[in-house]
Simulated scan of single mutants.
Amino acid sequence: MRGVYLYLAVTATVFALLSARCCLNVSSDETRTKLNGCAVDFISFREQFHRSYVANSAEFDLRHLYFQNATKRHAYLNSFSTVAQSAKYGINQFSDFSQEEFRDLYLRASADRAPLFPGLKTGKTEGLPAKFDWRDKAVVAPVQNQQACGSCWAFSVVGAVQSVHAIDGSQLVELSVQQVLDCSFQNEGCNGGSPVQALKWLKQTKMKLVPQSEYPYKAKTGICHFFSQSHGVVAVKNFTAYDFSGQEEAMMGHLVEHGPLAAIVDAVSWQDYLGGIIQHHCSSQRSNHAVLVVGYNTTGDIPYWIVQNSWGTTWGNEGYVYIKIGGNVCGIADSVAAVFL
């Protein structure tokens, strides 16, 4: 408990110093709002992210408080960034959300315990390229935005299916996330779900996914629309789900051999992520978010996974996050699924 109070005291002091420094350059006109902290930063944030809450309203005051709390977190998180490629944390589209609100809206994936990968612990990786990215093969669809719906589990599964379909020689077609969201009865739509359960449903029902253009995403759970089998694009024949913790080199081989992988991660600290390679702040004690691993790069000082997220292109590295390879950072290797069509 003493450590918690010490942390709060330190971060509060850091934030006060940062706020004072920032506000030195604020004109008298800008300070007329008489907000606590650095008012001009919050005003700029509202303009950039099109926030419509009214100044001096209760919601305005609450969001401004969350914004100030986010700035405190950023100072703490960035104190671990000791090398040039390290992750950076700062103001983004989630900076006026409380941590609880962010988790409730965006971190709704559940993880099924996966068996350990049965291959050799070291794996045969001599023949693997030093870096590999399925985007270079034009088989990865653009970054999507799940919006205020806990549908990451559906985005990761559909992302894997449409990529493997393209790898098999077909044209890359964006498939319907909404179809999986509405029809995967073992999951809970926008209230959350499991990629493994979604893949089990696809395998058991042999339901063919239709193009996104015919069953567009609505960011809310709806009634399942059924299509004839001849109308759909592709069905899942099988899938695997393994725990690669301690075997991330074998996971690299799995990615190259089978295509982009649907994975479950601990993404609590991603609320503040701006870019760079995440090496800290992920406990992996509770997996809560589903993503698509599309590549890796081991050529630099810090080897990393290339991971597509579903929070739009304004987040992270144009919608992507880089996670250090080794040590199971963010629980990236805990539950990893490959799709077979």
Rank of each mutant, 00 (worst) to 15 (best):
G193A: 02
G232I: 03
I306E: 12
D182Y: 04
A138K: 15
D41P: 07
S163C: 15
T240Q: 04
Q99H: 11
Q144T: 04
F227S: 07
L6H: 15
F155N: 05
H165Q: 05
N191W: 08
D243Q: 03
S86L: 03
A166T: 08
S86W: 01
F117I: 02
T313W: 14
W153R: 04
M1G: 03
N69D: 12
V54M: 15
C23F: 11
D104L: 13
D301G: 05
L62W: 11
L17N: 12
N36D: 11
K220W: 10
K208V: 07
L341K: 06
S27E: 12
V210G: 05
D182C: 03
I306A: 14
F102L: 00
S81Y: 05
Q178K: 02
C190S: 05
G222W: 08
H225I: 10
V161C: 06
S163F: 13
G189C: 00
N78K: 04
V268W: 09
V265R: 01
W201P: 02
V164T: 15
R73M: 15
H254L: 04
A111M: 14
D168V: 14
S151C: 03
A20R: 14
Y7F: 15
Q179A: 06
I167Q: 10
R21L: 12
D301P: 01
A58Y: 10
V256Y: 12
I223Y: 04
Y5V: 00
L172S: 06
K34V: 11
V54W: 13
T125I: 09
